[in-house]
Simulated scan of single mutants.
Amino acid sequence: MSEGQEEAIEAARKLFAGPVSFLLSAPSLKFLPDAIAPEIAFAGRSNVGKSSLLNALVGRNALARTSNTPGRTQELNFFDVGTPPVLRLVDMPGYGFAKAPKDVVKQWRFLVNDYLRGRQALKRALVLIDARHGIKEVDTDILDMLDAAAVSYRLVLTKADKIKPTELAEVASRTADAARKRPAAHPEILSTSSDTGQGIAELRAAVLSAIG
C-alpha cells in the first residue's frame, strides 16, 4: 500500500469516526433534503447485506436498519456524515424482492430512476453484489439505469468471508470483466465483509475519494 493510499484510508477513518446521523426518509422526490452536501448512494438486492455494510462503514451497530424480511425498506434513507455534513450516504430501496406487489416494484422504479436522473448532488453509486452469487439478472436493471443516467458507480462484493479466497478471486474477476463493458462503471472491484471488516477501510476511502 502506497503512502497516499494510507493517508486516504486514515482520512476516511477519521471522518467516519466522527458524527454520523440519520437525516430523513424520502418516499418520493418532494421529500428529498436540500442538496447541501455531496451524496453517495448504496444500491443492492434486498438480501445483499446493504444495511449491515452501511453499519460497518460508519462503525455503528444500528444506524441503518437491518431486517430478516427482504425488501422492507422502500424509501430513500439519508444519513449525514460530519457536522455540518461533509457528505451524505443514501440507502436506496432494495430490489429483487420476489413477493413484492407489482405496484411496489413500479414505485421503486419510479423513485430510484427519478433520483438517479435528477439529483445533481449524487456523486457516485455503490452497487452491492453478493460474492456468493456474483452479478445476477436482477442486478442488471439497476446497472442499466445507472448507465442511462450517466451516474458513476462502483461494484462492491459483500459477504466476501462466506466463500473461499480462490472463489472470491474468480467472482471478483468476472465482476470486473462485466464492469469494463459498462460505460458508467468504475473498473476496480471492492470485496467486503461486514462481519470480519474485510475491505471496510478501503470502502471508506473510496467513498471519500468519490466526492473529490
Rank of each mutant, 00 (worst) to 15 (best):
A160D: 03
E188Y: 06
S193P: 14
G96L: 11
E7C: 03
F22K: 01
D34G: 03
P183C: 04
A26I: 04
L54G: 03
V104M: 12
V58L: 02
T140E: 14
V207C: 14
R154G: 12
L87C: 12
P84Q: 09
K136P: 04
A17L: 09
L53D: 07
H186D: 14
L32Q: 04
M145H: 06
D139I: 00
F97P: 02
A121I: 10
G94D: 13
D144C: 11
M92S: 11
L24H: 10
E170K: 13
A206G: 10
G134L: 02
V104E: 15
A56E: 05
A185F: 02
A8G: 06
Y115V: 04
N61V: 01
V104D: 08
E137T: 13
L168D: 10
G59I: 10
L168H: 04
R132A: 05
S194V: 00
P165K: 06
R182S: 06
S2W: 04
L203F: 15
V156I: 13
R45S: 01
L23N: 02
T175H: 00
D139W: 04
A184P: 06
P93F: 13
V156Q: 03
Y115P: 09
S46A: 13
A12E: 01
D139L: 01
Q120P: 12
L32M: 11
S152A: 09
D80K: 01
D161W: 07
R109Y: 15
K159H: 12
Y95K: 03
R117N: 15
I129H: 10
D144W: 11
L155V: 04
N47T: 09
R174D: 15
